[in-house]
Nucleic acid binder design. Structure first.
Length: 467
RNA sequence: UGCCCAGUAGCUCAGCGGUAGAGCAGUUGACUGUUAAUCAAUUGGUCGUAGGUUCGAUCCCUACCUGGGCAGCCA
């Protein structure tokens, strides 16, 4: 029995072969006088394999009638040097079968489609060059994430998807409930009585595994999570999705400085890995998606990321001599236009902004000593990247029990709701830090694809959960 | 959630007060070691939905729906 060869491997064959078996989908067919060219793609690589089907094969006319774009075929034949210029090898079919036809209603054509249209046929778009390439890179990057952390002795921890904790500051949550919405139980005050719900309390889909991740870092030293995350924000932008994947390393005995370095090494590792293992796909993106891609990725690899404190960033923005939509003053959030200016115009490279005003950040971030002007900051950091903006957000966590409690009061949080989290500071507390990287945003950066909906297999955005 | 843009053939778009057009795809034929093949012919549309203005609306107005962009929220 002849085993199947992937198109990718056939292209890399060291020598001609008397018999190989290819199976895949037809991208296009071109008929010549006594034979047809059938271009077969199986998703293993960008480039299809050119198959020559001679009219001497039995049922040639009928086979070609059924060999339309989108049909699936099984081809057994000889791998021979191509007579044409476009490829090294081609396959001369000896046995040729159409497994599944694709009639005229098949929506994918040889010529380009708009990304908006392809989103409507998300079940078929991986059959296009662009999405095949995107999802090959996505798969490789997921692998590279594990490789990076495993090599550094970070343990992979599976934090819960359904959670009763609210990683405050991360965003709105999707509720998880089995209560009948038409007949909700009420407590004495008329509020929904979650005590009668499935878990006996109010639960939601996770917005971050960070708090749970910290508990494992405070036992196993260095951990990471990598999984889906859910935010019920009504965001309509090209870089927000309601369901996305996040990588969240957390390490004990790590400070903000080390956290920033880890983030930089991590991002560079992913880019280097994509360069090495997805070269053909990246070349495709460089040609059809973003002409600057290759130069930008090289540039990012070559230089250290810039670092600048929030306070310095404010000074830079105020000295920029630009008219801002929103004025910049110490204590304000950096707006999109400010972040863009820093990474795209001022530093012209990825930049890590750190030590943000305490008032802007969640309760768990470690508080710095006040500066000369008495201003309070926390050890937070955001990695800003040209073209996308924030790709990583992280911080050193507050390990001091009393300061953490004070922070919780400051944020109007009930300590009882976070008792297990507070315990980490009560028993053997250690300095620790971590960050979250938006996997899709990283993919946008690596591929040059401008919309987050196009780097997720099936995008969930407000009002849209087809498929 | 706010502001903005767009919905016309299967796809990408043009038309814009007088009743609908192109390219591609499809179909038919020709030609050819082609590779987004080429050439010729041809099929295909209650112009997003509902109201309104008008003698007359795809075109102007309003609302809604859908898609997209930007901002906020963040990753």
């Amino acid at each position: 029995m002849l085993t199947r060869t992937l198109v990718k491997d056939a292209h890399n064959a060291p020598a001609a072969a008397d018999a190989i078996l290819l199976q895949g989908w037809i991208r296009t067919r071109r008929d010549a006088k006594t034979f047809s060219f059938v271009e077969l793609n199986d998703g293993s690589c960008l480039k299809g394999m050119q198959v020559i089907v001679n009219d001497s094969l039995p049922d040639y006319a009928e086979l070609m009638r059924r060999s339309t774009t989108g049909a699936s075929v099984s081809v057994r034949g000889k791998l021979v040097p191509s007579q044409g210029a476009g490829q090294k090898w081609e396959v001369v079919a000896e046995k040729y079968a159409v497994l599944g036809e694709a009639d005229a209603s098949y929506p994918l054509q040889k010529k380009g489609h708009s990304l908006e249209f392809l989103r409507e046929i998300a079940h078929l778009r991986p059959r296009t060059n662009l999405f095949g390439a995107v999802f090959r890179v996505r798969s490789r990057m997921a692998y590279a994430i594990h490789q990076f952390f495993q090599e550094r002795d970070f343990l992979y921890v599976h934090t819960p998807i359904i959670t009763a904790s609210d990683c405050e500051g991360a965003g709105e949550m999707f509720g998880v409930s089995t209560l009948d919405p038409l007949n909700l139980p009420r407590d004495a005050e008329g509020n929904i009585d979650y005590a009668q719900d499935f878990f006996g309390k109010k639960t939601s889909l996770t917005v971050s595994g960070q708090l749970e991740g910290e508990t494992f870092a405070c036992a196993l030293s260095s951990i990471y999570t990598f999984g889906p995350t859910f935010r019920a924000e009504n965001s309509h932008t090209s870089r927000h999705a309601s369901e996305f994947w996040m990588v969240e390393p957390e390490a004990a005995f790590l400070d903000l400085e080390g956290d920033m370095q880890l983030a930089e090494d991590f991002v560079k590792h992913l880019i280097r890995d994509a360069r090495e293992h997805c070269a053909a796909d990246l070349e495709f993106f460089g040609k059809f998606v973003d002409k600057e891609l290759s130069a930008r990725l090289d540039f990012v690899l070559e230089r250290p990321f810039q670092r600048c404190s929030y306070t310095e960033a404010i000074d830079i923005l105020q000295a920029a001599g630009k008219k801002w939509e929103k004025n910049v003053a110490w204590g304000d959030n950096l707006q999109s236009e400010h972040e863009r200016y820093l990474s795209e115009e001022h530093f012209k490279c990825p930049v890590t902004v750190y030590n943000y005003p305490r008032s802007l950040k969640p309760f768990y971030m470690k508080v710095n000593a006040p500066d000369a002007a008495g201003r309070e900051t926390v050890r937070a950091m955001d990695l800003l990247v040209p073209g996308i903006g924030e790709i990583i957000g992280g911080s050193q966590r507050e390990e001091n029990l009393e300061v953490l409690r004070e922070n919780m009061r400051h944020h109007n949080l009930n300590e009882q709701d976070y008792s297990w989290y507070v315990d980490l500071r009560r028993y053997g507390s250690v300095p620790h830090a971590g960050f979250g990287l938006g996997f899709e945003r990283m993919l946008m950066f690596v591929t040059g694809v401008a919309n987050i909906r196009d780097v997720i297999p099936f995008a969930r955005t407000p009002g849209n959960a087809a498929f």
